[in-house]
């Protein structure tokens, strides 16, 4: 528990005082639409739904909502 608190304390300090190694003015590429992971959520969540219905595995993706979609 003590070690956990030390780690949490360290993280809380770093979270406030950390100097980002990628400065705000260096983030133009990261903000470009080619770098957006879920660019069009209406389309990506549909494909996730297809995978959920056709495969035994699921999770750690983008899908939400319910329904069977079986057979």
């Amino acid at each position: 528990m003590r070690i956990s608190l030390i780690i949490l304390f360290s993280l809380s300090i770093i979270a406030c005082d950390a100097q980002p190694w990628v400065k705000p003015y260096e983030r133009a590429h990261l903000a470009d639409k080619v770098m957006i992971i879920d660019r069009d959520s209406v389309a990506s969540s549909y494909l996730e739904h297809v995978y959920d219905a056709r495969e035994g595995a699921r999770g750690a993706g983008l899908a939400s909502g319910g329904g069977c979609g079986c057979n």
Binding site: H29, V34, I37, A57, G59
Partner: peptide, 19 residues
């Protein structure tokens, strides 16, 4: 069930990305 996923995306110089 448990699922663990990683996604890595890299910007390419000619305004493209690979993931």
């Amino acid at each position: 069930s448990n699922a663990l996923a990683f996604h890595l995306r890299h910007y390419l110089p000619h305004r493209a990305s690979v993931y």
